[in-house]
Nucleic acid binder design. Structure first.
Length: 369
RNA sequence: GGGUAGGUGGCAGAGCGGUCAAUUGCACCAGACUGUAAAUCUGGCCUCUUCGGAGUUCGGGGGUUCGAAUCCCUCCCUACCCA
């Protein structure tokens, strides 16, 4: 078994556990910073590690295009290549079917991409997606799926489910790398019947972990929150459950409350680069003029390097001057915030007071004014 | 003293009789960002507005014209050149 999952405690539907991988353990609920192109943008691996990350994401589509999965393999695999000795999960490129929809032709055979870099063709079949991820050498590989937009017609959602199931089967059959686990991805949009059906088929194939895909693709956050408990409930209790691409801090807590174990999202790093910080008082936009003369740290009580050493006024200045340290410091703070949130959630679950913890967070984050 | 070129919204800089409340960039203000084509993008930026418009603007003053940032006169100011 490439990975295993230990469940330590439950609190309602919420779970605290550990995912064991060849590159180390991951405490869950876990947030996984996104390092699409072999780097968490703006941060060194040491900074990401010190912020408390146990596991990172990499991306099949992006790394296959550049530098190429064989180059990564020949340079020692993704862990060595990017100097991250801890666990790595690679996404399959399924999300790019959604985000780069304009340059993708999708058939039952696979997804034909027109490279966003130079226009050259890249065909991602389930088999190719597996090969790429085996070359990258991630601890957890995702099956190739079709991720339809939230406003997709019932036919489109249905087709994505059917296709994702077939592709999962092909991925499983093609997978051969020892030490690498493969997670399946449940689609179905907001249709709970489809979700259940998709989950049932995939669970029958006995993957070591399961993901919920196709969320946060344009639907109202509340609609996702409402669908999560039932969707998570369709997944095996003794295997990790991963909600892909989610989300805001409140979305993570909704996921945890629903029984999700793993999350990833570009939000802390992208928003950090764009001057938005997540704090105990809710989001703070450091570009706003009101911070110009503020000597206070971004978030009092936060132990991250940014909050320990710099004022809001300084951060405001960095963004006004377009200095690269600004995006770096806010990215660092934001992933620290996310990772601390997950650590606090784990403690709350073990203490049997997760609902209380969640309610307290939501109350704090909502602007008082 | 003579000559030349100019004075346009916070700045730079278009416009050179009507389609100009005035292109564009910067600055400024606010917003967005959810398995990263994003250190990106969007909106606002004279005043008031029932968001349909209304009222005052292009150095000052005066004029020509149905109509002027755009033409004429005059004054003030700036830069450069010559004395």
């Amino acid at each position: 078994m490439a990975i295993s999952f230990t469940l330590h405690a439950t609190d309602g539907a919420a779970r605290a556990g550990t995912v064991h991988t060849p590159h180390g353990d991951v405490s869950t609920p876990a947030f996984m910073p996104v390092g699409t192109q072999g780097t968490v943008k703006g941060l060194t691996p040491e900074m990401v590690r010190d912020a408390g990350a146990h596991i990172l994401l990499g991306n099949t589509y992006h790394l296959a295009l550049r530098p190429g999965d064989e180059i990564v393999r020949d340079l020692g695999g993704l862990h060595t290549f990017m100097n991250w000795p801890r666990p790595i999960l690679t996404d399959s490129g399924g999300f790019q079917v959604f985000s780069l929809a304009g340059q993708v032709k999708i058939t039952d055979h696979g997804a034909k991409f027109k490279s966003h870099i130079d226009g050259s063709p890249l065909e991602l079949t389930p088999e190719r997606a597996v090969e790429i991820q085996q070359n990258l050498g991630s601890d957890i590989a995702m099956v190739l799926d079709e991720c339809p937009p939230a406003d997709g017609t019932p036919e489109v959602i249905r087709r994505a489910v059917t296709r994702s199931i077939k592709w999962a089967e092909r991925c499983k059959r093609h997978h051969s790398r020892p030490g690498q686990a493969q997670f399946a991805i449940v689609q179905g949009g907001l249709n709970l019947t489809l979700r259940a059906e998709c989950a049932r088929e995939l669970v029958a194939m006995d993957f070591p972990g399961y993901a919920l895909g196709g969320f946060s693709v344009g639907e109202a956050p509340e609609a996702m929150h409402a669908a999560l408990p039932a969707c998570a409930g369709c997944l095996p209790e003794h295997k990790p459950r991963y909600l892909m691409g989610v989300g805001r801090p409140q979305d993570l807590l909704a996921g945890v409350a629903s029984g999700i174990d793993m999350f990833d999202c570009v939000m802390p790093t992208r928003n950090g680069r764009n001057a938005l910080a997540f704090t105990d008082e809710g989001p703070v936009r450091l570009r706003n003029a009101k911070h110009r003369r503020d000597p206070k740290p971004l978030m009092s009580g936060c132990g991250c390097y940014c909050c320990a050493n710099y004022s809001r006024g300084y951060l405001h200045h960095l963004f006004a001057a377009e200095e690269m340290l600004g995006p770096t410091l806010l990215s660092l703070h934001n992933i620290s915030f996310y990772l601390n949130l997950m650590a606090d959630a784990r403690n709350a679950i073990r203490a049997g007071r997760f609902a209380e913890f969640r309610a307290g967070c939501l109350a704090r984050w909502t602007p008082a004014s």
